[in-house]
């Protein structure tokens, strides 16, 4: 296996809460992996640690063999790791196209030659237009985030993250509030990007969708990695069943 992301012994404590406990795993290059776990399992904290929104107490993170856990968040982003947020986040005073273009400017010109998903080639204007077209946002180009539907806002957020031309994209519950059709529509788009070389780590509570879509799954519980495997393996794992039956209705 050729891992693009190597997590070793990552931990974070908030006062008495061990939000992430000695988590280690690898994400294979070009894969679409899932991270699941009940509420409060530490999934968002994990993403925050890797993207450096928070500093880990211990542990290391290698992106493409390069240590990134000591870099500030903007350097992590420029190194090729982008993320989206559980609670939708965009620059609320900027239009959709400005939101996308801004990330493009700050992230630096597309520099990862081995990638080939939408929005990577040409000048900023062309790249922005291509990304908006890909996510069917062209009609909303001048709209403010507050004027967008939930669906469009989510898409705009993913488009903004992709504007960084990342190698790895971490999506924190992108399907929350989506119907099954809407979730699969976004997944279809993500799969196109995967064909273009993008690696993805997906977080969601919708088990049905996750088990169907992800090639490999990691299960977190109480901050620690509880299990990992293919969807068949995870589905059959008694500990996972126990946790999910215990925590979710």
């Amino acid at each position: 296996m050729d891992p693009i992301l190597e997590i070793r012994d990552l931990s974070k404590r908030f006062g008495g809460v061990e939000a992430v406990k000695a988590v280690s795993f690898d994400v294979p290059r070009g894969s679409l992996v899932g991270l699941i776990g009940p509420n409060g399992a530490g999934k968002t904290t994990f993403v925050n640690l890797v993207s450096k929104h928070e500093s880990p107490d211990t542990g290391s993170v290698l992106l493409d063999k390069r240590p990134i856990h000591r870099l500030p968040s903007f350097k992590v982003a420029r190194a090729g790791l982008a993320r989206t947020y559980q609670k939708n986040r965009l620059f609320f005073e900027e239009s959709v196209s400005e939101n996308i273009r801004t990330a493009m400017i700050w992230g630096g010109a597309a520099k990862h030659q081995d990638l080939s998903y939408p929005g990577l080639k040409g000048k900023e204007e062309e790249r922005t237009a291509e990304l908006m077209e890909f996510f069917a946002l062209t009609a909303q180009r001048d709209a403010l985030p507050s004027g967008l539907s939930h669906l469009h806002r989510r898409r705009a957020e993913v488009a903004q993250a992709l504007a960084l031309a990342p190698k790895l994209l971490m999506l924190d519950e992108p399907f929350a509030g989506f119907s099954r059709e809407e979730a699969f529509d976004l997944i279809d788009h993500l799969k196109v990007c995967q064909k273009g070389g993008l690696t993805m780590l997906l977080i969601d509570h919708n088990m049905e969708v996750m088990l169907e879509v992800c090639e490999y799954l990691f299960v977190m519980h109480h901050g620690a990695l509880l299990a990992s495997g293919t969807s068949a393996e995870v589905r059959a794992n008694p500990e996972v069943i126990n946790v999910y039956l215990g925590a979710e209705t």
Partner: peptide, 25 residues
């Protein structure tokens, strides 16, 4: 230009600005 854009972004959401590649500090 770009400094003004950065300042506005910092006011709106500086964590997001960092995550999108801006050297906020």
């Amino acid at each position: 230009g770009h400094v003004g854009r950065a300042l506005n972004a910092i006011r709106q959401d500086e964590d997001l600005a960092g995550a999108r590649g801006l050297d906020v500090l």
